[in-house]
Amino acid sequence: MSEYQKPLPTPTELTQPFWDGVREEKLLVQKCSGCGTLRHIPKPWCANCLSDDYTWSQLSGKGEVYSYTIMHRAPATSFQTEIPYAVALVELEEGVRMISNLVGVPIEDVKIGMPVKVVYEHVNDEAALFKFAPA
């Protein structure tokens, strides 16, 4: 495949399991062992009960668009050929929210509340991205 030009995730020790999960086509979030609260983006402790203990929990990948914008101005030159494209704040059915691109839908059809499901893009041998498409 041709070389992927856009920015790739730069995981930290804390976030590595999330991105490893994406490569394996799993959407993982931290689940607090103290109170059960799910959290994204990863944090070293739970903001609800302050417990340091957690496990990684797999989400269904189903959710809906909570809000969105259509980017008509590229934030980096590597996105210049993509504009206009949709970026959504998606509320997963388990309650956490994630930001990613909406794919497989014309930008004029993007609506708040539309059901979406996670899809994966293996952009090169090492990295994969999670995106959302109409469910």
Partner: peptide, 30 residues
């Protein structure tokens, strides 16, 4: 005209081509 970095870290916005100011578009749509 920023590089699309999230203040929480580059990994959550820039791979998706979102500049932080795009948040205002999300605030507006909601």
């Amino acid at each position: 005209g920023d590089s699309g970095q999230s203040v929480s870290g580059d990994q959550w916005l820039s791979p998706f081509g979102l500049a932080r100011v795009g948040y205002y578009g999300m605030f507006a749509h909601r």
